[in-house]
Each structure stands twice: as structure tokens, then as C-alpha cells.
């Protein structure tokens, strides 16, 4: 999923204070799962924002709504009348949702309420960790299912580096060395030869190196 964290109230107050009526818009997908921008977080932010503004003598009508998804035009279309009734929108979706709104509602100021972080997985309740950087040419088949791009601080294709110690990455005791994990897993699978094989330099064109990427499925595209 795409993970995110709420921005500090202070920053959000700066965004909204010129307006009289705003819509706080949540998203039911990734940001709900990582507890950053779902229906509940919309409620919490609306309440916190209202109180913080009140303290500065500002009164804003904060409306709340949560869409099934903000990154799909059909859902974004549902709120035409709601948008018409407000001066600005604060989106609690990831950056994709924010941009989808900005593209559809061209004359409405749209602000992000969260900082979009990374594509990650849940390690345990309340903990999410980065797992993929969308390189466009997945290597997991050769690396024992552990991504050296998202999880090795140096994005080494042929690790580990000399800083790997006791299973930890040299950047921090709290970070596993991805290449240690890769080695352990390949060994457990009896695939040590994959480790020894030299992986050539990666072609980053598929990973955004040649500009913004797009997927066109001709059977589906209209």
C-alpha cells in the first residue's frame, strides 16, 4: 500500500486560514489502512483543526467526507456539488488523490493534509515499512523475495557493502541489512548461486529515469 502521515496542524492551519468553508476529504483505501487519512482521521483532524483555529479566533466551516478512492475519476466525480459549496479542499489522500482532485476541480484550491511516504507493508499493528520503489523491472525473483532497491540504503545490486555488521545496515542498528536478509533467504532456499552471480548495472529507464511513467492497457483503455 501507499503509506502516509498527517502533516503538522501548524502547516495545515496556514493552508486553510484564508477560507470560510473547507472540505476535508478522506480516502477509504491505503491511507485508511495506514491510519493517516481515512474516515476516522478526517474526524480527528476536523476536530483538532476546528479547536486550534478557534484558539486563534478563526472560525471556519469544516465539512467532512470520505471517498471510496480519490485516485479514480469516477469517485472524484461524485462530489461535484460538495466542491461547489466550499472555498477549498484539504485532501487526506496520498499525493495521487490530491492531484486527481486538482485536475478535476481546476478552479478550486486543493491542499494535501498528509505527507505521502512510501510503498510499504505492515510489519505489525501500527508499524509500516518501505518495501518497494516501483523500479518497473522487479528483481525479487533473483533476490530471494527481498528488495535491494527499497531496502538497501545504497541500492546495491551486488551487496552487501563493507558496512554490513551483525545483520544491521551501517546507517542504523534499527535497520536490517537487506543483503544479509537476501543471503539468509537464498541460503535457506538452497539458491546460493543466485547470490554469487553478478547482477549488471540496472537500467533505470523503467524506474522513472526517463520521465513520468504510464501504463496503457489497450484492451481496457478508452
Amino acid at each position: 500500500m501507499i503509506t502516509a502521515e498527517r502533516k503538522p496542524l501548524e502547516e495545515l492551519i496556514e493552508y486553510v486560514k484564508p477560507y470560510k468553508r473547507i472540505l476535508l476529504l478522506g480516502c477509504n483505501e491505503c491511507v485508511t489502512v495506514c491510519a493517516a487519512g481515512g474516515r476516522k482521521e478526517v474526524g480527528l483532524l476536523a476536530s483538532g483543526l476546528q479547536m486550534a483555529l478557534l484558539k486563534s479566533g478563526i472560525s471556519i466551516d469544516i465539512r467532512q467526507h470520505t471517498l471510496e478512492r480519490q485516485c479514480d475519476p469516477e469517485y472524484v466525480e461524485e462530489i461535484v456539488s460538495m466542491i461547489a459549496g466550499v472555498d477549498a479542499v484539504v485532501s487526506m489522500a496520498c499525493g495521487c488523490g490530491v492531484q486527481q482532485l486538482a485536475m478535476r476541480y481546476k478552479d478550486k484550491p486543493i491542499f494535501p493534509a498528509v505527507n505521502t511516504k512510501f510503498m510499504g507493508a505492515s510489519e505489525r499493528q501500527g508499524v509500516w515499512a518501505e518495501r518497494c520503489q516501483g523500479c518497473g523491472n522487479c528483481l525479487l525473483g533473483e533476490t530471494g523475495g527481498i528488495c535491494p532497491i527499497a531496502r538497501c540504503a545504497k541500492q546495491l545490486m551486488n551487496g552487501p557493502c563493507g558496512g554490513s555488521a551483525g545483520g544491521h545496515c551501517e546507517i542504523s542498528e534499527d535497520v536490517d541489512c537487506a543483503w544479509q536478509l537476501i543471503w539468509d533467504r537464498l541460503k535457506a532456499l538452497g539458491k546460493e548461486e543466485s547470490f554469487v552471480e553478478i547482477t549488471p548495472a540496472k537500467d533505470w529507464r523503467s524506474g522513472g529515469g526517463s520521465g513520468p511513467r504510464k501504463i496503457i492497457r489497450e484492451d481496457l483503455a478508452e
Partner: peptide, 9 residues
Amino acid sequence: ALHIVKAFE
């Protein structure tokens, strides 16, 4: 958290 925050609000 929402119950608590609402109480203050």
C-alpha cells in the same frame, strides 16, 4: 482518540 478529542471540542 476521536471520542476524547470530541469531548474537548
